[in-house]
Amino acid sequence: MKKGVSTMAEAALQVEKRQKNTKSYLKQLRKSGKIPGVYYMHGKDSIPLIVNEKELRKLLTSNISVFTLNFGKGGRKSCVIREVQRDPVKGNILHVDLMGVKATEKIVVKVPIHLVGTPEGVKTEGGILEHHLREVEVECLPKEIPDSIEVDVSSLKIGDSILVKDIEPGNVEIVTDKEHLLATVVPPAVMPEVTPAEEVEVEEELKEPEVIGEKERDQQEKTAEK
């Protein structure tokens, strides 16, 4: 099984400092296609920001973990996205937290897992590949953060599995529990045989009419006369 690491690509996000924090101002920002945010770093004052929503969405859909914040004349800072707040109903981005990082200090980030190849058990035995864990947490220097970790599953047969401990991530240390199941190949689902419904003949029970005896008939007539 081959496992590979896709190295981090360079990316930058243009931002501007935000001077206001009123509810009406933030609402107007979002209507204009911009998102309020904040940049912070341990031991330093936080900086309120304005981020272009389209550029932020592009960054969120990429596999890039560490990128550069471009403040224009205010300089450039390396950071990671720490939290994205969304509207619970519409899912719109409401706010973003950006955390500064140092090139010489290790950080913990999540990295996606990409499965590569078609398992032998799928091609020749009709099995089904199940992808259980789609990302892992790793600890490393910012410049060593991979875009993704590739795991070759082509040799897996039915019943074979790959655990987190089987990954070879290169220069990064995996923080996620090593015993977590990453992927496995299971047997194909067996569909029950459908048989034609058998016709069932229902016999109707013939009930004989109840015969009222002479004594009972006389009793009914006397009751009626009263």
Rank of each mutant, 00 (worst) to 15 (best):
S78L: 03
M8S: 12
I35W: 11
T61A: 08
P209W: 03
R134C: 06
N70H: 02
S161A: 15
L60E: 12
V101R: 00
C79A: 14
E179R: 05
R30Q: 12
R18F: 03
D147H: 08
S161D: 11
G74C: 13
E168D: 04
I107K: 06
V136P: 00
L26R: 11
K2S: 10
R82Y: 07
L98A: 04
E208T: 04
D166A: 03
K77N: 03
E201T: 09
S161N: 13
I158S: 05
D160S: 12
L13K: 02
I50M: 13
K31M: 14
S32Y: 08
K54Q: 12
H114M: 01
V200P: 05
K31R: 15
Q19F: 09
E203S: 12
K58I: 08
S155E: 07
A224I: 10
R30L: 15
A189D: 15
G75H: 07
V186A: 08
Y39V: 06
V38M: 13
A103F: 04
E55V: 10
D45W: 13
I158Y: 07
T7D: 14
V211D: 11
G72M: 11
R217S: 10
G126T: 10
K27A: 14
E225A: 09
D218W: 07
M41R: 15
E139D: 15
I212H: 03
S32Q: 15
G213P: 02
T7V: 09
L98R: 02
L206E: 14
S148D: 09
R82M: 12
E144M: 13
L98K: 01
E83Q: 07
N92L: 15
V51G: 00
G127P: 00
K222V: 14
G74E: 11
N63K: 07
V186W: 00
V151E: 00
T176H: 04
P188C: 15
K226N: 13
K2D: 09
K58Y: 10
H180A: 11
G127V: 05
T118M: 14
G75F: 04
R18M: 07
V202R: 14
K143H: 07
K23M: 13
M1L: 11
D177F: 01
V138C: 08
I174A: 05
R134N: 10
V108Y: 13
E214D: 14
P119G: 06
Q28L: 14
P169V: 03
I145C: 14
V96L: 03
G127E: 03
G72P: 04
S32G: 13
K102E: 10
T22W: 02
E150T: 08
G159K: 09
T223C: 15
H131E: 11
G100Q: 04
G4Y: 00
